[in-house]
Design a protein around this nucleic acid. Sequence first.
DNA 1: CAGTTTTTCCGAATCGTTTCCGGAAACTTT
DNA 2: AAAGTTTCCGGAAACGATTCGGAAAAACTG
Lengths: 344, 344
Amino acid sequence: MVTIRDVAERAGVSRSTVSLVLNKSPLVKEETRELVLAVIKEMNYVPNNNARGLSNKTMNSLGVIIMNESQPSNSYNFDNHSGLCAYNISNGIMSGLADTDYGIITEAFCSVAEPDRLPKIIGNRRVDGAFIVGSPYAPELVANMKKTGIPFVLVGVNSYEQDADSVLADPGEGSALAIRYLVETGHKRICFLNCPTRFRSYYVRKHGVEQLVKELGVEYNPEWFLSCEHNQGASAYKTMKAFLDTGARPDAIVAANAPLALGAMRRLHELGIRVPEDVSIIPYEDSVLCGYAVPALTAINIQKEKLGQLAAKLLLERMKDPDRPYQKIVVPPYMTFRDSVLVR
Amino acid sequence: MVTIRDVAERAGVSRSTVSLVLNKSPLVKEETRELVLAVIKEMNYVPNNNARGLSNKTMNSLGVIIMNESQPSNSYNFDNHSGLCAYNISNGIMSGLADTDYGIITEAFCSVAEPDRLPKIIGNRRVDGAFIVGSPYAPELVANMKKTGIPFVLVGVNSYEQDADSVLADPGEGSALAIRYLVETGHKRICFLNCPTRFRSYYVRKHGVEQLVKELGVEYNPEWFLSCEHNQGASAYKTMKAFLDTGARPDAIVAANAPLALGAMRRLHELGIRVPEDVSIIPYEDSVLCGYAVPALTAINIQKEKLGQLAAKLLLERMKDPDRPYQKIVVPPYMTFRDSVLVR
DNA sequence: CAGTTTTTCCGAATCGTTTCCGGAAACTTT
DNA sequence: AAAGTTTCCGGAAACGATTCGGAAAAACTG
C-alpha cells in the first residue's frame, strides 16, 4: 500500500506538502502542485480514509436511514404512507453526492416508535450526516437526533411542520393536480379512494381534495370519499365492490396510490366497467406499476430522484454551515399522461 | 467525545486493557472485564471506527456494487437480464450482516464494459470486501477484481462458470418448474416469450425449456419460442400481436419476466382472450407486479433476499479464510401460486 | 519458601493523515 | 545590499485505536 510518505519521497517534497496538495490548499506553488499530482497518479496513490478521518474527526460517509413505515419487504417499491419510495430517493441521493467523496451507508430500518434507537445507530456508525427518509411526523425523533449533533435532513412528505431541514413532496398539491385535470377533462362524479387519514399524508390529501372539489363546484358527496387499508390492493377491491354495490357510478376515481388503483380496477373489470371509457382513474403516485397496468395509468409523479438530489445538496450545505436557518424544500409533483383518463 | 483513554482512566486500568476487553480477548480477568464493560456503558463509549481501522488496516465496511445492466432508473425493480432485483438482494445482504458491525456502502453503478473501473472504485473507497450484484458473465472484471486483493462475491444468475465465490439463482431450473407445472395441469401448446439470448441467462432459460419440452413430449415448435426486447413490455406486446396474428393459439405462455407477461396480456386482453380461461401465463420472475396484475400472476420466485443473505455469509467466510477454495451456491427457485394458470 | 509457571496487565510503538508553527527561500522595496 | 514581505516547505504533534513484548501478580511446585 502506497502512503503519503512514499509519494512525498518520490516527489522530493515533505509529507505535509503532499497533504496540502491533496486538500487543494492555495499555499503551494503551482509547479510543485503539478509535480506532486503527477507522482500521485504515477504511483496510483489513494489516501487512506481512516487516517484522514482520524485526523479530521470526519467519517467521509453519510447515512441513509429508511424508516420502518416504508419497510422494504413487501410494499417498499410502492407508495408508502409517506407517499415515497425510499429506494428511488436513495438513488437521487447518490447522484446528488456523485462529485463529493462521501460514501453512503445504508442503515438498518427504524421505526418512529423507537425515537432513541435511530440516534444511537447513527452515533455508532459515526457518520458525518444523515438522511432520514420516509419519516412521518416524528418530533421526538427529531429532537433526539438534534442532541447527537449530527446534521441530518428529513426526506418525506409535506405534512406537519418540523423544526429541521427537510425536502418534501407535496401530497395536497398532487391530489389537486389530479382533480383539476379530471375536472378540466369533463369529469363530474369523482370518487376518492384513500388510505386511512390517521396517516398524516393521507389526511392532507383528503382535505386538499375536499377543498378543491367544493371550490371547483364538482358534485360533493362525503360518501364518495372512500378509505381502505393502507396500500392494500385487496382492500381497495373490497371497498370498491361495496361502493359500487350501492349503485354509485363515478366517472372518475382518484386513488391514493397505485396498488389501490389496481385493486379497484380489478373490481371494475369484473363488472365490465371499462377504463377509461366508463370511468377514468388516476393513482396519486406514479410507480413502475402504472406503466404496466392495462390500460397504462395516468398518474401523479412526485419526483423521488429529485427529492434525493435536493436532500443531498441540502445536507452538504448544512454540514458546511451548521448555524444557518433550517430550510424546507417542497418539490412539486407533475402528471405523467398515459391511458387511464378519458378526455371528453 | 469519549475515547478509550477516558474509559481507561475512569476504570483505573490501562488503555490496552480496555482495548482487550473491547476485542473480547480471553486474557483479561473476568472481574476487570466486567468493570470495564460497566464503565463503557456508563460513559456511553463507542469506539472510533477510523482509529480502529487505521490500526487494523480494516475499513469496517463492505461495498455493494450494482452492475449497470440492472440500472435502477427504469427497470431496476424488475427482473433484469440477470434475472435479479438488486434492491431485494441488498436487503438480504443487510440482514445477513445484521450481527456484525460492518456497514454497507452502496457504490456507483458499473458496467461490465469497463472492467477497470470497478476495481478502482472499490480500491478508492477502501472496503474490506465487496458484493458484485447482477453481474453477468464478466471474466475480465473478475480477473481485475482479484488483482485488487479485495475479497468479493458475485451475486447473480447461474450461467457461466466463473472462478470466484458466487451465489446464484438458477434460471434453467426456474423455467423448468414453470413448464412442468403447466404440463401437469394439462397444458399442451406452450409458448415461450423470452428476451434476447445474447444475454446468457436467457440463453440458459431457452435451452432449459427446449430440452424439457421435448422430454415431456409437449408439442415442440421452434416458432413458438419468441424473443422480444429486453424487459420491454411494449415489445412483448408487439411480439405477441405478431404471433397471434399468425393464427397461433397457445394455451399457456411462459414469459421470461413480469413486464413481458404484462405486455403480452395487454394484447390478449384486446383480443378478448381470457387469462387464465383461454390461456395460462407464468412469468419467470415473481415481482411486486405479479401480485397486482389482473388476474394476479402465478410466478417463479428466485428468492432474492435469500441470495443476499447467503452472499453475506459467504463473503464473511472468505474474509476469514482467504485461501479456501471458491464456492458456488445455487439457490433453487420456487413457485408462487396465484390466479393466472388454469388447472384442468 | 525460593523458584517456576501461568495469568493478568501495562507501556510504548504504530497505523496514515492533517495541521500548526517556525523558518528558509524568493521577491520587493528603499 | 540590507531590511522587510511573501510564499512556500518541513518537523512534529495530534487523532484514537491495536498489539506486542515484557513486567507484575498470582498460582503452582517440590
